[in-house]
Structure formats: C-alpha cells, structure tokens
Write a protein that binds this DNA or RNA. Sequence first.
DNA 1: TCTTACCTGTGCGCATCTGCACAGAGGGAA
DNA 2: TTCCCTCTGTGCAGATGCGCACAGGTAAGA
Lengths: 295, 295
Amino acid sequence: MDNWDEIRTAYQVARLGTVSGAAEVLGVHHATVIRHIDALEKRLGTRLFQRHARGYTPTEAGRDLLTVAQTTEEQFAQLSSRIKGHGETVQGEFIITSVAGLAGLLVPVLAEFQRLHPAVIVRLMTDMRIFRLDYGEAHVAIRAGAAPEEPDNVVQPLIRIRYGLYASKTYVEAHGKPASEHDFAGHRFVTAEQEGSRAAFFRWLRERVAPEQLVFRSTEPAAWDAALHQGSGIGFRPAWEAAAQPDLVEVLAPRPEWDSPLWIVTHVDLHRTRKVQAFVSLLKESAKSWPQCAI
Amino acid sequence: MDNWDEIRTAYQVARLGTVSGAAEVLGVHHATVIRHIDALEKRLGTRLFQRHARGYTPTEAGRDLLTVAQTTEEQFAQLSSRIKGHGETVQGEFIITSVAGLAGLLVPVLAEFQRLHPAVIVRLMTDMRIFRLDYGEAHVAIRAGAAPEEPDNVVQPLIRIRYGLYASKTYVEAHGKPASEHDFAGHRFVTAEQEGSRAAFFRWLRERVAPEQLVFRSTEPAAWDAALHQGSGIGFRPAWEAAAQPDLVEVLAPRPEWDSPLWIVTHVDLHRTRKVQAFVSLLKESAKSWPQCAI
DNA sequence: TCTTACCTGTGCGCATCTGCACAGAGGGAA
DNA sequence: TTCCCTCTGTGCAGATGCGCACAGGTAAGA
C-alpha cells in the first residue's frame, strides 16, 4: 500500500461505479483512473472491480477498500479544515521565551492576551540557555542586546529598556552618592561576571572605574539585584524596575547610550500564523505605554 | 486534500523528523520529499514543519497530521493484508447461480464446500432471469445447453446430464408403454412451452410426434415434473432424478444425443480467486461420482 | 579548534505519468 | 431493429515530477 493516491482513485471508482465519473470528480483523465486501478490491482494481486461496458462494479475487496477509504476521506477533510482553521482561530499553546527579569513587563501583556483569547494556554519560559525557535521550542522570543542575526528568524525591534545607576539608601548613607561619573573614586560597584559582557552600560562602567572597584560580580542577574539592595555597591538597573523600589536611590539618571534594545524574534515558519501575529501586535501596542522605557 | 501521497510523505517526515529519513523509508529521493512538503503546505496555507539544518520539526498542524495519518497508515496496512488474504483464505459470501432443477446435485457439493471452509456463507440463486456475472451478482454460474460465449466469462465444461423418456406407472397402466420412437402414435407428451426450445431432446421429440400429441406444455420445469407424476403424459427427465423416483417408468433409456451439457461459468475478474478456484475444483471432483451422468 | 558526517536545498536532464484523440462496445429508446 | 449516447480501452505526444549532483550549513567528536 505504498501509493495512497491510487487508493483514493479506487475509492472514487468504487463510490461512483464508473471510471468516467471518478475521473471527473478527481479532475483527471479517465485513462489515468484506469491506469491507477490496474496498477493497484496488480500490486495487490486481486481484482478490486469487475469491468463491464457500463462501468466498474467493486468486488468484495473493492467494497472493503470503499469503506476504509471513506473514513480516510472524512479524516483528511476534517484534518484539512482543522489545519486551515488553525490559521484563523487563536488557540492551543502559546510559548514565549524571554530574557530573565522581563516578567514584570510581560506578564500583564500575557494576561491580556489570554483574556482576548481564552482558548490559549500561555507558557512563559525563562532559562539560562537560549530556547531555540527552530525545533519549535517557542513561538516568540524576547531577546536583549545586539540584534539577533540568526537565519530563518524574523527580528523586530520592540523597545529600548532604559538603564540608570542605582544604589540602596544604606549604601548612600555609608559611602555617599557620586555626583557624576567623574566622582566614582572610592566607590564600589555591582556588575556582571564576564569581562566581555555585551551590555553597553557594563562596558561604559569598565572604562571608567578600576577593576578593584567592581567588588560584587555575578553571572546571575537576580544576585545583582539582591546585592544592590543589600548595599554592596552601585549598579545598573532598569529604570522601570528601580522606580518601583523605594529603597533605591538614583545615582545617575538613565542615558540613551545605556539603553538595552529589546527584540521580538519569531521563526519564519510561525511568523505568519494568526496566533503569533495576534500576540506580537498586542505586545507592540502594550509596550508603547510601558513606563521608563524609550520607544 | 486532493493528494494523499503528499500526506503520506508528510506523515513520514513528521514521524521520523528528517527529510532524508522519510525519503529512505518512502523509497524516493529526498528532493521529492521536500517538494511534496512544500506543495502540501502551500495548498494548506500553513506550515507543517519548522525547517532547520538538522531536520524538520512538526508544528501543531504537523503533529495533527501525524496522528491522523498514523491511523490511516494502519488502516491501509490492515486493508492490504485483508485483501491479499482474501486470495489465500476462503471466506465471505459465495454466490452461485444455476439452472433450476440442479439443486439436488449442487446442494451436497455446497454442503461439502461449507464443511471444508466454515467461514463461507453460501448463497444459491436460481431464478427465471439469468444472473449476470459481471455486476458481481454471482461468483459462479452453472449454465446448461450450448456453450455460453459471453466475453469476459471463463467457460469450462462440467458434465453432460443424461436425459431419458419417462412416464408414471399410472400413465403406463392407462396407455401402455411405447417400445421405441416408432411406437409413439396415440401417446401423450409433456414438454416445454416454447416452439424453439434449445434443448436437444425437445427438438428430437418435436420431429417425431404430431403437435397435438404435446398435450401438456409449460414454461416451468417443475410443472413438467408434476404433470409427469400425475400421469399426464410421457416426458424427458434427467436420468439421475428419475432413478430416485420409483413411481416413474423408463420409456426410452438415455441416449447420447439427448445429453444436455453443463458449463461452469465464472467472470474472468473472479476466476483466479482462491474461493472460486476452491469451489470449481471441488465441483469438478464431485461431478465425477454423480450417478447417471456422462463425463 | 579542526574535522567529519549528516541534513537541507536547488538547478538540470530525463523518465514517467498524464492528457488527448480515437476506436470499440454495450445498453436504452424510438 | 436501428440509432444514439455513454462508457471503457489504447497508442502517442507532451508536461509534470523525479533522480542526480552539488552547494551550503550545522552539530558532534577528536
């Protein structure tokens, strides 16, 4: 049974009783139908039809094929309408992966998305490793930093996260607050672990302070946050996050050169789907009203 | 969904995860697989797979297709084995049509056939009209008289039924018994209705007796039989049938020129099937031991 | 880091399948 | 019986689809 098209042809012949009728329904020439039947019977080693001048009458085997192929026809028709419908209705899982620390901004958008489309199951994945959009691990990814350039990925700019320099009140009480970057001498800083960190503000900082001033370094962003609140030093924080934390003091206000751009990344195979489009447009609209962010 | 082969291709890709693997299983070139997927997705308007360098990952639609096509694959495999098995095992309906009055010979054969193949349902059809072997009305037909010459029918000689002239004891007591065909004057005969009856012995009789001697004519063979027993006249009867009826007296013994040949007729499309072959060979074997019949 | 193996993707030439046209045959109606 | 319509069946020419070969790229392993 390694030629399903011939089964489909035989099904129509069994259903309609004539080669010509089947050919018309299938949109092929009746000679093609005859050849399909001949090939299928030859392969099966049994006659599926009795031939006579008025048409083809199915044998027992032909009637068996008829019933089997009938359900197949229906199954495929339902499958087709389901698949085509998938492009129209928004439902099923929606998997989004993002850089850690963006949940505070994303969750309200996801909640609104789910309110608009109740049939959607939202899964927000934040992890150390980067989830891959190929392999189908996620529908949408929110990436930070330099624009991703992977092939097969559709990259759109979302927004620029504004970063400022902050310190806890306890730190300011103990060490004072530098008035500008020219006043950093003697101050202590919380920063990322890697030397070659790709964030612009980390590079900016490394160019202006001595390495021994970077007293707290971690690979874990949550650790930066905690160290900042503990008063371990001065560090960069997203402006929108710091604004909601009254125990932090703004040391230097956000500057455009510190901005970290966010990117919406989707796989080209999924980008056109209605589900992805619905979320992306909602996300872009919501981002316009995000506080302390530059468009 | 007007190309089932492409669905089959997509199914293998979804199952195996790679185009190359699917191509190997399907026995085609991997370029063909790619083209099938592209065509199917284009027609559906949705992506079934996410493409990456290590293979194809099915999307939701692709996974849906996978489950549907999986059952289709199984259904077709079962269908194939059933159909191929039909050639091997003898089962299902077996429809035989025959000239009326042959049931006494056929029924024992049919009973033996059913004993050998318990899964067979036997249907013996005797009717005024001739059942057509094309259109699938019967698997085997037993025809009498001249050899059938319909195209697409396989005709085999079965046996020659011997006919003799018989009368009931009551007729003989009343009118006497003619010694030979030269002694037919004054006797009464039971015969068929049509002038141009094709049976050889009827023609033989019409040539030797006056029309007014054919006192009982009927289109119905059972009526000849009844009229014979009632003593209405002398008539032809199969020798095997008369031998079992003690109230009949043999007027003239069977002659070769009165023989009526029987033919086994099968449709060429069914002739090769195991079921038909099994019955035909059993019938031929049984006929060798039929009493009062000429091979 | 380099190598290797495997997978996807595409242009080209060819085989296969399809469509076309016509022949043949059977059934139904007048 | 005769005519007509419909259906099957086949040879031939052309188009579609296939296999081939090669390029490009990724991941795994040494």
